[in-house]
Design a protein around this nucleic acid. Sequence first.
DNA 1: ATGGATGCAAAAGTTTTGCAAAGAA
DNA 2: TTCTTTGCAAAACTTTTGCATCCAT
Lengths: 145, 145
Amino acid sequence: MSHNTAEINRRLREAGYRVTPQRQLILDAVCELGKHVVPDAVYEVVRRKTPSLSRATVYRTLHFLTEQRILAMVQMADGRVAYEVAGPEPHHHLVCRTCDSFLELPHSVLRTFRQRMDSQYDFEIDVSHVSFFGHCTDCRDAAGA
Amino acid sequence: MSHNTAEINRRLREAGYRVTPQRQLILDAVCELGKHVVPDAVYEVVRRKTPSLSRATVYRTLHFLTEQRILAMVQMADGRVAYEVAGPEPHHHLVCRTCDSFLELPHSVLRTFRQRMDSQYDFEIDVSHVSFFGHCTDCRDAAGA
DNA sequence: ATGGATGCAAAAGTTTTGCAAAGAA
DNA sequence: TTCTTTGCAAAACTTTTGCATCCAT
């Protein structure tokens, strides 16, 4: 479990929202599924435990938890939107277009780049999450061979 | 007109494809609409000249022209797919999340970054087009004021 | 004339919404 | 009890596909 349930529940209640079994199930599902989790995958997982839980609730809850900064929205290679548990520090991904695997980049690798854009172009890059797409070693080797 | 019609038509015919009024209209529309052009916007434009032109043809033609490297596919902030005329050299965008304006970055700014990813992470970033999202000076000032 | 391209309409897939009912605080 | 959240079903969108027809070559 990579999220602190008690702390999150406190935060939600403090902001006037309610802690429901559905919200907990959906958050657990995202957590369990890992990174780059699509709504449909969440739906499939939560449905096993609670068949009555609807798709609408999955979508509403993913939006809600993203607004609360408990989840983060990320983009996949094909343009689809996915989610993951938001860590305390932003991080970024190198996503392989061939095998869909990805490497995590520490925030620091973008820091220099961002500063350059800021001073050179007067543009502040939003670095909550950036995905770069390309090809990992394995797939490159496979293609080249 | 930022594309060479004669040259493109030649290329298509040489590859065994046909040059149709629809394809020309759609390419002109993308050209006229500029950067980050969504399918629906293309459809609205071409429809004015040729009301019978169907959405299916817009989608099929955008895919086709992308395959032929005459157009390039780009991603927008909300995850939607858009298109633009493909230049000879890749370029990148700084897209403002507030006002949707964007700045064009020369390919060179990513070259260093890319080399670092390659040597450090064994990952070859696909740099045909990268969009960074954030906030331009104007919108930053407006928000900060 | 020949086969690639188009139009139409229907399908498929994904996300949103209205509203009554349920249930967390 | 109160008011947020949910489930259901339908709607809204976006994109794809089958097939007969059309038309660029």
